[in-house]
Design a protein around this nucleic acid. Structure first.
Length: 562
RNA sequence: UGGGGUGUAGCCAAGCGGUAAGGCCCGGGACUUUGACUCCCGUAUUCGCAGGUUCGAGCCCUGCCACCCCAGCCA
C-alpha cells in the first residue's frame, strides 16, 4: 500500500519517462535552485520533492545550486539554513553542491561569444526608456537605437562595463531577439546589468551580474541537468531558456518543465512577506513556530515524514490550486500518531481527592508508551490520594452524553482505577476547586475487576509527582484575507493581494501552564514529540515546550457539551 | 482588444475514445482504558458552457466563458 502510493506518478514523471524511453535521457539529473534570500518554507518543500524527488524516483542525481546572481538580496545565513532544511526534510544533493556565482566567468565568456555572434548588444537606454520602448501586452516594442552597434563597439563597451567604468544602471547587455515578439520576454531581454555591490561568494570581483534568464539555462546546461523543474510563472521564459541553450551551443539541452507552486489556505507563502514579518519583529525569527517555514514547523514538532507525505498527497499538477490546511494537519497528525510516545499531562489542573486512598500511599502503574507499538515499552505513572485532572473534564451539571466526570458518575482514570465522583468543593465565588471521589479498588488496570466498562476515561497526574511546566500554544500564522483587507494601505478599490499586510492571528500565542506526570518528559531532547492524550502534541523546544492542538474533537461532542 | 497556461465533488487530484480512481473535509455506524486513534459505509447520472464527430466523448473537433501569469537592469 505504501508502495502503491509511492508509485503514484505525476505528469512530470510521465515526461521524464518519455525522455528515457525515447533515448533522449540516459541518466536523470535534476537540480534544486534556491535563492539564498530567506529560509525555506513549506512551498519549497514541494520544489524539493519535485526536483530531488524526481532524481530519487529515477535513480538519478540532483544538484544543489544556490541561485545567487543578485547580491542585493542574498546572504550567507540563508545558504546555511537552506542546506540544513533540505537535509532535515530527508533529501540530499548527490549530484554536488554548486553556486550560480561560480559560473560567472563562464557566463561572461558566453556573453562575449553572443556579442561576437551578433546576438547581444550593449544598450545605453535608461531604465525608463527601456520600459517605454518595450511595447505593451498588445503593442510591439521598438528597436533600441543601440541595437545595431558593431561587434567591436559592443565588445569594448561590455568589457568596460565589467571593468567598472560605468555606474549602476548606465548600460545593460541585451539579447538581440525580436522586439515584436508577442512574448515580452523575447523582446531583447537584459542579460547583464551593472551592480557595484560585493557578492557573498565572489566578493568584489564583479560589478556586472548576469540575469536569471541568462544564467539559469547556462548553469543547467553546464551541470548536465536533464530536467529543470520550476513553477508556472516561468512558462513564458521557456522560449528564452531554450534560446540561450541553443545560441551558447551547449551539447546538453535541459528540458524545463513547469508545475503549479504550492498554496495553502490561510497561509502566507511569500518570502517577501515572511521576510518582512521577521524584519519588523512581528515574529521571533524565521523559525518562529507560527511561520510556515520548515524551521518553524520543525519547532512545532512536525516531522519531515509528515511533511513529505503531505506534499505527495497534495499532488503535482499544472492547475492553480490552494490546498486545504486540513490536509497538512491530517498528514502531520497521522505521522505523529504513529511515532509519538503517549504521555499524560494536565493543562488546566483541577484537584481530585480520592477519599478512600490513604495519605502517603502511592501505586506505581505501568502505562504503554504507544498502544499500537508494544516495542516502545512502558513508563510508570504514580497514583496517589491527590491528583489533578483537566478542568474541562468535570462538569457539575452536564448535558446528556457527557461521558466524563460528573457528580454521581463513574469514570476510569487512564491506566489506574475507576472512580466515582461523590461531591465537589467550591470557593467563595462558586468555582469548583476540588472534586472528591471514591476509587473502586478492585478495578485497577490489568486486574480481575478491570474489565468493567465505564463510558469515560480521563488523563490525570499525581499531585505529589507533578512537575509544573509552561508550554506555548501557537496557532499557525494565518492570513485572514478579510481581516487583512482592512489593513491595506491606501484606498485602492481592488487592492492587489500582494499589498496585503501579513498579520498574525491575535490569539496565535498562548502560554499554557500545567502539570506533567512524567519527569522523563522534562529530560527530553529538543525536537522530541509527545502526544498528550486527547489534547494534542508537545514538542520539546529550545525555549521549553511548544504545544500543537492538532487533535480535534468530533462535532457531536462539542454539541453535546456546548 | 497580444502571448502563455489552467478549468473533473467543499479542497486537492487520477483519467491518454469504452461508460467518473484515490486522499482531505463532511455525514452515518462499529470499536475504544479518553469522545482521540483504528475500522467499515456513504457522498459527481457527471467532468467550465454550447454545439459537432463517433456505436460510444471528461478525453477528438468548433465556438464561447472564467481564472492565473507576462510589460524588473528580481528570481
Amino acid at each position: 500500500m505504501e508502495d502503491a502510493r509511492a508509485e503514484r506518478g505525476n505528469f512530470i514523471w510521465d515526461f521524464v519517462q518519455e525522455d528515457i524511453d525515447a533515448g533522449r535521457t540516459q541518466q536523470v539529473h535534476t537540480r534544486l535552485p534556491p535563492e539564498p534570500n530567506g529560509w525555506l518554507h513549506i512551498g519549497h518543500a514541494k520544489n524539493i520533492y519535485v526536483n530531488a524527488g524526481t532524481a530519487v524516483r529515477f535513480g538519478g542525481l540532483c544538484n544543489l545550486r544556490f541561485d545567487d546572481t543578485n547580491p542585493a538580496k542574498e546572504e550567507q545565513e540563508f545558504v546555511d539554513g537552506i542546506m540544513g532544511d533540505i537535509r532535515w526534510l530527508g533529501y540530499d544533493w548527490n549530484g554536488g553542491l554548486f553556486f550560480g556565482s561560480s559560473y560567472f566567468d563562464k557566463c561572461y565568456e558566453l556573453a562575449e561569444k553572443l556579442i561576437r555572434d551578433g546576438l547581444a548588444y550593449v544598450c545605453d537606454l535608461s531604465q525608463e526608456d527601456l520600459r517605454r520602448t518595450r511595447g505593451t501586452l498588445t503593442q510591439p516594442g521598438q528597436n533600441s537605437p543601440y541595437r545595431d552597434r558593431s561587434v567591436e563597439e559592443n565588445l569594448d563597451l561590455f568589457r568596460r562595463m565589467r571593468a567598472g567604468e560605468f555606474p549602476n544602471g548606465a548600460r545593460v547587455l541585451r539579447a538581440k531577439i525580436d522586439m515584436a515578439s508577442p512574448n515580452i520576454n523575447m523582446r531583447d531581454p537584459a542579460l547583464y546589468r551593472i551592480l557595484h555591490m560585493p557578492h557573498h561568494q565572489t566578493g568584489d570581483k564583479w560589478c556586472i551580474y548576469p540575469m536569471y534568464d541568462f544564467a539559469h539555462p547556462i548553469q543547467d546546461a553546464i551541470e548536465g541537468i536533464t530536467h529543470s523543474m520550476c513553477s508556472l510563472e516561468y512558462e513564458d521564459h521557456r522560449p528564452l531558456y531554450n534560446w540561450v541553450v541553443e545560441v551558447c551551443e551547449f551539447p546538453n539541452h535541459p528540458r524545463q518543465i513547469e508545475y503549479a507552486r504550492l498554496n495553502l489556505t490561510r497561509t502566507i507563502m511569500s518570502k517577501r512577506y515572511l521576510r518582512r514579518l521577521v524584519e519588523e519583529g512581528r515574529v521571533s525569527g524565521w523559525d518562529d513556530p507560527r511561520m510556515p517555514t520548515l524551521a518553524g514547523m520543525r519547532r512545532r514538532g512536525y516531522r519531515p515524514e509528515g511533511i513529505r507525505d503531505f506534499i505527495e498527497r497534495a499532488g503535482v499538477a499544472k492547475a492553480d490550486s490552494v490546498v486545504d490546511l486540513a490536509l497538512l494537519e491530517h498528514c502531520i497528525r497521522e505521522n505523529l500518531g504513529e511515532v509519538a510516545p503517549r504521555a499524560m499531562a494536565v493543562l488546566r489542573p483541577l484537584k481530585v481527592t480520592i477519599t478512600n486512598w490513604p495519605e502517603g500511599k502511592t501505586d506505581a502503574l505501568p502505562l504503554e508508551n504507544h498502544p499500537a507499538r508494544p516495542e516502545m515499552g512502558t513508563h510508570e505513572a504514580r497514583f496517589g490520594r491527590t491528583l489533578y485532572i483537566e478542568q474541562e473534564d468535570f462538569m457539575e451539571n452536564p448535558p446528556g452524553k457527557f461521558f466524563r466526570m460528573k457528580p454521581g458518575g463513574e469514570v476510569r482514570l487512564k491506566g489506574a482505577y475507576i472512580v466515582r465522583c461523590d461531591e465537589c468543593v467550591k470557593d467563595a465565588n462558586g468555582n469548583v476547586i476540588e472534586v472528591r471521589c471514591t476509587a473502586d479498588l478492585s478495578s485497577r488496570s490489568g486486574s480481575e475487576g478491570a474489565d468493567r466498562k465505564v463510558k469515560g476515561t480521563l488523563h490525570w497526574v499525581n499531585a505529589a509527582d507533578a512537575a509544573p511546566f509552561e508550554a506555548r500554544l501557537y496557532e499557525p500564522l494565518l492570513n485572514d484575507e478579510e481581516a487583512i483587507a482592512e489593513e491595506v494601505e491606501g484606498e485602492e478599490a481592488v487592492p492587489d493581494k500582494k499589498d496585503f499586510i501579513a498579520r498574525l492571528n491575535p490569539d496565535s500565542l498562548t502560554v499554557l501552564t500545567g502539570c506533567m506526570a512524567e519527569p522523563w518528559l522534562t529530560e527530553a531532547k529538543d525536537g522530541d514529540v509527545f502526544q498528550f492524550l486527547r489534547l494534542g502534541y508537545f514538542c520539546k523546544d529550545k525555549d521549553g515546550f511548544v504545544f500543537n492542538r492538532t487533535v480535534e474533537l468530533k462535532d457531536s461532542f462539542k454539541k453535546a457539551v456546548k
